[in-house]
């Protein structure tokens, strides 16, 4: 499945957002991580059940140093 993740195009086999993160090697349990799908934030507790579809725009962010 073709997904747009953090502005990059990726071909993944994922069925849910949790799968996407696993395939990318990103641990959603790490403090300060959050995910949005097509412009809407998906709560951490829903990552396991949030299905992904062809062409989805996914943002995976974290808290970093900044002013």
């Amino acid at each position: 499945m073709r997904l747009h993740i953090n502005g990059e195009e990726r071909e993944l086999v994922a069925a849910t957002l949790a799968d996407v993160l696993r395939e990318l090697g990103i641990d959603p349990a790490v403090p300060g991580v959050a995910v949005a799908q097509n412009g809407a934030v998906v709560p951490r507790a829903r990552l396991q059940v949030a299905a992904v579809a062809e062409g989805d725009r996914i943002e995976v962010v974290r808290a970093v140093q900044g002013g």
């Binding site: 808290a63 970093v64 900044g66």
Partner: peptide, 23 residues
Amino acid sequence: TVAIRRISLERGTGQSLLDHIDP
């Protein structure tokens, strides 16, 4: 203050600021 940024798909999560700042 902290910023919110995309996680690098190449580098992954790695070390976090939050490991060093006690919330």
